[in-house]
Design a protein around this nucleic acid. Structure first.
Length: 887
DNA sequence: TACTCGTGTCATTAA
DNA sequence: AATTAATGACACGAG
């Protein structure tokens, strides 16, 4: 866990980075700088929530649905942060009339609004682009805050990278999303991989789980239900603003918060089982109703969960834990961890304890929102003086529609991603955690966004998701149980859960088909179940009772085929257990990729081709670089020593190796994608191109050193330091009094190099050394490039494997679908057969015995009645054929 | 102390 | 034939 977390934090590549934004919009990022995001917490939270909301709007708009009411909840959360209503009008103007009815705005948010409005003009598509804008804002926030806590150089690095990404042309979006395009150079490789893995995990979650927007939709939906069920007040209650909320909340922030959490959890739980497809927008009445409900609860001084007896205990437990955490001074982090642990515990209904793993992004989304609030609370100890009274937070939490629910579930919702930490209350740490949360958010948002943006059928995402959850009641249970695997938010368990859940998703898909959805995967995939699933009883009997089939088997061929298919499918399922990835893929396919693309580049061949292409591209670039001398080299972005032009004369500075420890830490793995480098001339100046580049420049004697020398030397005697940093060749060159720099020796084109040599009277030893230096220097660069390439290849392969797995899952799923439809068709035919056969009468007016006669399709399409024996023979023949074919 | 990782170097090969 | 890039193998130092 520590490692993962570490990786996450260490990774300078933030998901919010502009690289995820549509390129066309990137130029507009600048104006945002004026907004001045720097302060963490409030900004982050508000923006995050707002981001959710707007993303929702955006997605909805993409689908031509208009803003979905559910997204207003996000806004509501933001708005409820506030006590001031001065800017309500603006909010109304910006976000729609319903928003105005909610509450006043927090001053901070109010301050943001004007900026929002003014920024809006930068875009032509109104809210949609505005949403993107907000994403960018989020980027700013994250980056800034993150950078603030980092070393200055890192900041440069990050910024440079971001810009680099901005300008980088990726072969495809996937690369970008994968983080594959990430420039690992500035990242410790270990961290990089870790982070990447994490991101992938998150991505996997995102894939097959309900996106943020959907979650919101679910949540919203849930509320009306609750209202209907009972605690429902009259619609006449006016929506008061936070003032009322605060009053109701009182000092008992912890309780409220927990209540809110529970609400989330419950909502989550409902996702699968209760909620209906939320395709349609909620009516304004619904929204109002929700608001009223919330308000009422608040007015009553209790969350809705209060009314639920069974859950009260849990709530209190939660509160205890929370308060304990606070007392210990662990702050929100500890609370988060506890919450996480709580996930394992309780099924509110059965009392059964199980790991409530986070089934999906939805949870995380809700979670992250919630976490934001909690983080806010922890970050700003809401004392009397705090500008952010505890009441507000609790209010916020309460604002979220909440009903009684198992603590476990809710907790899972709250902090699935929250790293468990014992560290004491540490603002920076907290913020970093928040950042990671937001990273998750960003991932998910970005994914959604990206898909929506680039995917013509983006709408499917939403639609499918909406449909999926409602249609798969099993889903919920399954995922919950599965969650047990990873409920703890320890990284490891989290991962496992993530992995597991996808499989669950897959299984659930299957389960849908199954009459009896059994308790476990194994059962589910057992042959029995499958046969049950795919073959109606009659058919089964028919097939099995070959000895004395009551019905002939005119469809024998088809049946057999289906059987075989099914069997093979079973084998597949059993053999691979519908491995998580596949399952997730399956789900994903369900969700987004509705295409019947059995053939569409999903085959291994296509994959391999893509792989080949990618690798080839990299290789080609390198090869091209190699073809021409140094100039081309640098141009390629391949690792190379800095050219003389860039590095002034370093002769004097020879000793200093221009690479700083700090840099090395973060940038050790500087693998520079040539293509990327190509677009980032300024990267050089940023100074984060160290590793490979550094080697070239830095290692090389004089050049690179200069910049770094100053920093490094501060602690050591310059001379010592320089000596230390100097490469062996540099030392040798110095010892031999070579009159020019190693850089020149290494990087000069042959002709110039020879010229240079000719200018000096050099001894044989000197010449020999110079040639060695040149050879070694070039080889060093070559080695670096080679390694980079190798790494590239590995990453590509990794991605390809993922793609393949996804494709495989998709195919599997499609197969299931086909089998299902085949089964249905068979059933129809069977029915028809029986009907026809039953109506047949012999010359005596008696019905034919199914034991003696059978209907059979003739080659010309007609149906004929033949003796049973004949039919059996034919059936056997067909069987044999099939077998032969198979073999 | 053993192990891993990043890096530099050498030898070799191919272009 | 000379030069260079690519790459496997090895050594070394740092963590």
């Amino acid at each position: 866990m520590g490692r993962h977390k570490k990786g996450f934090q260490a990774s300078p590549v933030h998901p919010y980075s502009p690289q995820h934004c549509p390129r066309a919009l990137q130029p507009h990022r600048d104006p945002l700088a004026a907004v001045g995001f720097g302060a963490p917490s409030l900004w982050g939270c508000a923006l995050l929530a707002c981001h959710h909301y707007l993303i929702g709007l955006w997605v909805a708009a993409r689908r031509g649905l208009g803003p979905h009411p559910s997204f207003r909840r996000c806004l509501l959360v933001v708005l409820q942060i506030s006590e001031a209503g001065a800017e309500r009008a603006r909010a109304t103007e910006l976000l729609g009339s319903s928003a105005a009815t909610l509450t006043g705005l927090h001053p901070v948010f109010c301050a943001l609004l004007p900026e929002m409005l003014s920024l809006k003009k930068y875009f032509t598509e109104g809210l949609i682009q505005f949403t993107i804008l907000l994403s960018l804002i989020g980027v700013r926030v994250d980056v800034d805050t993150y950078l603030n806590s980092q070393l200055p150089p890192l900041r440069e690095i990050i910024l440079g990278q971001s810009s680099a990404y901005t300008q980088t042309q990726f072969h495809n979006l996937r690369n970008t999303l994968d983080g594959y395009g990430i420039h690992p150079k500035s990242v410790d490789l270990d961290y990089y991989f870790t982070a990447r893995r994490l991101l992938n995990q998150v991505r996997a979650l995102d894939r097959f789980q309900v996106p943020t927007t959907e979650v919101s939709a679910w949540l919203v939906h849930r509320d009306p239900d609750g209202s209907v069920s009972g605690t429902q007040p009259s619609a006449g209650i006016a929506l008061e603003n936070s003032g009322g909320l605060q009053d109701g909340t009182g000092p008992d922030g912890a309780v409220r918060e927990s209540g809110a959490e529970q609400g989330f959890g419950e909502e989550l739980e409902d996702l699968g089982a209760v909620a209906a497809p939320v395709n349609g927008d909620l009516t304004k009445e619904d929204i109002d109703l929700i608001d009223i409900l919330w308000r009422q609860d608040i007015d009553l001084g209790a969350g809705r969960e209060i009314f639920d007896y069974s859950h009260r205990q849990k709530e209190s437990e939660v509160d205890k834990e929370l308060s304990d955490g606070r007392e210990r001074g662990d702050g929100w982090r500890s609370a988060g961890g506890q919450v996480t642990n709580r996930n394992l515990l309780v099924d509110g209904e059965t009392g059964e304890s199980f790991p409530a793993q986070v089934p999906g992004v939805e949870d995380q989304t809700a979670l992250s929102l919630e976490e934001c609030l909690r983080l806010l609370e922890a970050t700003f100890p809401f004392g009397e003086n705090s500008e952010f009274p505890a009441a507000d937070v609790s209010t916020l939490s309460e604002a979220v529609p909440s009903e009684s629910r198992p603590a476990g579930i809710q907790s899972s919702l709250l902090s699935p991603l929250l790293p468990e930490t014992e560290s004491p209350f540490d603002l920076e740490q907290q913020w970093q955690d928040l950042m990671s949360i937001m990273e998750m958010q960003a991932m998910e948002v970005n994914n959604t966004t990206a898909e929506t943006l680039y995917n013509g059928t983006s709408g499917d995402l939403l639609t499918s998701n909406y449909n999926l959850a409602p249609n798969t009641p099993i889903n919920q249970n399954v995922s919950l149980h599965q969650a047990s695997l990873g409920s703890c938010s320890q990284d490891f368990s989290l991962f496992s859960s993530e992995i597991e859940s996808p499989s669950m998703g897959g299984s659930s898909a299957l389960l849908q088909l199954a009459p009896d959805n059994s308790t476990g995967l194994n059962t589910t995939f057992s042959s029995t179940n499958f046969s049950g699933i795919f073959f109606p009883p009659q058919l089964n009997s028919t097939v099995n009772e070959t000895a004395g089939p009551e019905l002939p088997d005119p469809l024998g061929g088809l049946l057999d085929e289906a059987m075989l298919d099914e069997i093979s499918l079973m084998d597949l399922a059993i053999e691979e257990g519908f491995n998580p990835v596949q399952a997730s893929q399956l789900e994903e396919e369900f969700d987004s990729d509705s295409g019947l693309s059995l053939d569409s580049g999903h085959s291994p061949a296509s994959l391999s081709s893509s792989e080949a292409s990618s690798s080839s591209s990299s290789s080609s670039s390198s090869s091209s670089s190699s073809s021409s001398s140094s100039s081309s080299f640098s141009e390629e972005g391949a690792v190379g020593y800095s050219s003389d032009s860039e590095n002034v004369d370093f002769e004097e500075a020879e000793g200093a190796v221009g690479y700083q420890p700090e840099y090395s830490k973060f940038c050790r793995m500087s693998y520079q994608d040539p293509s990327q480098l190509h677009y980032l001339p300024y990267l050089e100046h940023v100074g984060h191109n160290h590793t490979y580049n550094m080697a070239p420049g830095t290692l090389d004697p004089e050049e690179p050193k200069l910049p770094s020398v100053g920093k490094k030397s501060s602690k050591e005697k310059p001379s010592e330091f320089l000596d230390k940093q100097m490469s062996r060749d540099e030392h040798r060159a110095r010892a031999m009094k070579i009159p020019f720099t190693n850089d020149k020796i290494i990087n000069l084109p042959v002709e110039e190099f020879n010229e240079l040599l000719s200018k000096y009277q050099l001894s044989e030893a000197q010449l020999s050394l110079i040639r060695d230096i040149r050879r070694r220097g070039k080889n060093k660069m070559a080695a670096q490039n080679c390694r980079k390439r190798k790494l590239d290849t590995i990453l590509n392969l990794e991605r390809d494997v993922e793609d393949l797995q996804r494709d495989k899952s998709k195919l599997l799923r499609e197969k299931v679908e086909f089998l299902k439809s085949i089964r249905q068709m068979k059933q129809k035919v069977q029915n028809l057969y029986q009907e026809v056969f039953g109506r047949l009468r012999d010359e005596n007016g008696q019905p034919y015995s199914p034991n003696q006669y059978a209907l059979q399709y003739a080659s010309d399409g007609s149906v004929i009645l033949i003796p049973r024996t004949l039919a059996d023979q034919q059936a056997r023949r067909q069987e044999r054929k099939q077998k032969d074919r198979r073999k």
